[in-house]
Deep mutational scan, measured.
Amino acid sequence: TGEEYIAVGDFTAQQVGDLTFKKGEILLAIEKKPDGWWIAKDAKGNEGLVPRTYLEPYS
């Protein structure tokens, strides 16, 4: 299990392996990579890379 984050903006996948999401979606951070791209999972179970700058902790 990971930590929940809320998307603060829309993001469209730029390449294969990225995860597209919309502002307000809750994402589960699976792995926090030091380069600023995290592996996350959305509510539908889709998994991919997301930019850290689009996420804020969800409580």
Rank of each mutant, 00 (worst) to 15 (best):
N46T: 08
E4N: 09
Y58I: 11
Y5G: 00
W37R: 08
T12I: 12
E56L: 11
Y58T: 08
I39K: 09
F11D: 00
Q14C: 11
E47Y: 14
V16S: 12
I26T: 05
D10E: 06
T1M: 13
Y5S: 01
I26H: 06
L55T: 01
E47T: 14
G45L: 03
G45V: 00
L55H: 01
Y54T: 04
I26E: 01
L19F: 02
I26K: 06
T53N: 14
A29F: 08
K23N: 05
Y54G: 04
K41L: 10
Q14R: 15
K23Y: 07
V50N: 01
G2Y: 15
F11G: 01
V8D: 02
D35H: 07
Y5C: 03
P57Q: 08
G2N: 12
L27W: 01
L49R: 15
A40F: 08
L55Y: 02
Y58S: 07
W37C: 09
K33G: 11
L55M: 06
P34A: 13
D35C: 10
P34E: 13
G36F: 05
L19T: 01
P51D: 14
E31C: 12
L27S: 00
G2H: 14
T12W: 11
E31S: 11
S59V: 14
D35I: 03
A13E: 04
P34C: 11
V8T: 11
E25P: 00
A40E: 02
G36K: 04
Y58K: 08
I6L: 08
S59F: 14
K44G: 09
K32R: 08
F11V: 05
P51V: 04
R52C: 15
G48T: 01
V16G: 09
A43K: 11
L27A: 00
A43H: 10
Y54Q: 08
K23S: 07
G36I: 04
G36N: 06
K41F: 05
I30M: 09
I30K: 05
W38N: 00
T1Q: 13
G24W: 05
L49A: 09
A40M: 15
W37D: 04
D18E: 15
G17N: 07
T53A: 14
E3H: 10
E3V: 11
L27C: 03
P57R: 09
A29V: 15
E3R: 11
V16D: 14
G2D: 10
E31F: 13
A40Q: 01
P51T: 03
G24T: 02
E56P: 02
E47A: 09
L27H: 00
D10Q: 04
S59C: 11
E56F: 09
W37P: 03
Y54C: 10
K22F: 09
K32M: 09
E31V: 14
A40H: 02
P34W: 10
Y54M: 14
K23Q: 08
R52V: 14
P57A: 09
F21L: 05
I26A: 03
G36L: 05
A13H: 04
A7K: 01
F21T: 02
I30N: 02
G36P: 03
P34S: 14
Q14L: 12
G45P: 00
R52K: 14
I6H: 03
V8C: 09
G36C: 08
D18M: 15
I39A: 05
D18Q: 15
K44V: 09
K33W: 08
E25C: 05
I26Y: 05
I30Y: 05
L28K: 10
S59K: 13
E25V: 05
G24Y: 05
G9V: 13
K44Y: 14
L28N: 07
E25F: 04
P34V: 10
I30F: 06
Q15W: 09
Y54L: 15
V50M: 01
V16T: 11
F11H: 07
A29H: 02
F21E: 01
G48P: 00
E25T: 08
G9D: 14
T53Q: 14
G36R: 02
A40P: 01
L55R: 00
A7R: 01
F11P: 00
L27T: 00
E3D: 12
E56Q: 12
G24D: 06
D42T: 05
E3F: 11
D35P: 02
Y58V: 11
F21I: 11
T53P: 09
G2L: 14
A43P: 08
G24E: 02
D10H: 06
I6E: 04
E25G: 04
G45A: 04
G9C: 15
T20M: 05
K32H: 06
E4K: 14
L19K: 00
I26D: 00
D42Q: 01
I6N: 01
Y58F: 11
K33Y: 10
I6K: 07
K33P: 06
L55S: 00
A40R: 00
E4M: 15
F21G: 01
G2T: 11
L55V: 04
L19Y: 00
I6F: 06
D10P: 05
P57Y: 08
P51R: 07
F21A: 02
T12S: 09
Q14P: 05
E56C: 12
W37Y: 08
L19G: 01
K44N: 13
D35Q: 04
G17P: 03
A7T: 10
K33H: 12
K33I: 06
T1A: 13
G24S: 04
N46P: 02
E4A: 14
P57V: 09
G45C: 06
A13D: 03
A13Q: 05
S59D: 13
F21P: 00
D18Y: 15
R52W: 14
D35A: 04
W38E: 01
Y58H: 10
L55K: 01
I39M: 11
K44S: 11
K23G: 04
K32A: 06
N46R: 09
P51S: 07
P57N: 06
K32G: 04
D35F: 05
I26S: 03
K44F: 14
Y54E: 08
Y5D: 01
E25M: 08
K41W: 05
L27Q: 00
I30G: 02
V8S: 07
G17R: 05
K32N: 04
K33D: 06
K32Q: 08
A43W: 10
F11K: 03
L19W: 00
W37H: 06
V8R: 09
V50S: 01
W37L: 07
I6C: 07
K41T: 07
V16L: 12
I39C: 09
E31N: 11
Q14T: 13
G9P: 01
